[in-house]
Amino acid sequence: MNTTDLTQTPIAADGRFEVQLQKSGQILQISKDQSILKALQDAGHDVPFSCSEGICGTCLTNVVAGTPDHWDSYLTPEEQAANTQMLICCSRSQTASLVLDL
């Protein structure tokens, strides 16, 4: 199954999903108890963040494909419904794969 198919497939029952970084093509596996931000940091990526609680908007990231599961209180309901941006410090995925503009 390719990444395009996974951006349309619901998230795994165990809460795992993958994040593909559009600029490098790198794919990171995100566990149910790990944030996207933490996975990026663990993989050596220096991404901006501040509060790590979805309040400040510092880690706002564009979504290329997939459907975020918004856990933040920064984006408006309309912005969340558009699914074009997400806060990677706290939000997760509703689909098996997200492609981010990173």
Rank of each mutant, 00 (worst) to 15 (best):
N62T: 15
I27G: 03
C56E: 06
Q26C: 01
F17L: 12
I88A: 05
A96E: 07
F49D: 06
T58Q: 07
V47Y: 03
P68I: 14
Q80N: 06
Q22P: 00
S35N: 00
L6V: 01
I88Y: 01
E18L: 11
Q80L: 04
L21N: 01
D14C: 13
L102E: 05
C90M: 02
L28A: 04
V63C: 08
Q80C: 10
D33W: 00
Y74K: 09
C89I: 11
E18I: 15
Q22V: 08
V63I: 15
V99W: 04
V19M: 02
V64Y: 06
P10C: 13
G15N: 13
L87T: 10
G66E: 05
V64R: 11
T7S: 07
D46K: 15
V19Y: 02
F49P: 03
T67Q: 15
I36W: 01
K38D: 15
C51S: 06
L21T: 09
T61S: 13
S31T: 15
I36R: 01
S73N: 07
A96D: 11
L98I: 08
I11F: 04
L28H: 01
D42R: 12
L6W: 02
D101F: 05
T4V: 09
C59S: 13
S93F: 06
S91C: 08
G54R: 06
F49Q: 05
Q8V: 05
D14A: 14
P68K: 14
A43V: 08
T3N: 05
E79V: 13
Q41C: 04
C56V: 12
E53F: 04
K32H: 08
E53D: 07
S91H: 07
V19D: 04
G66A: 14
D5F: 06
P48T: 12
D101A: 14
C51W: 05
D42K: 12
T7C: 12
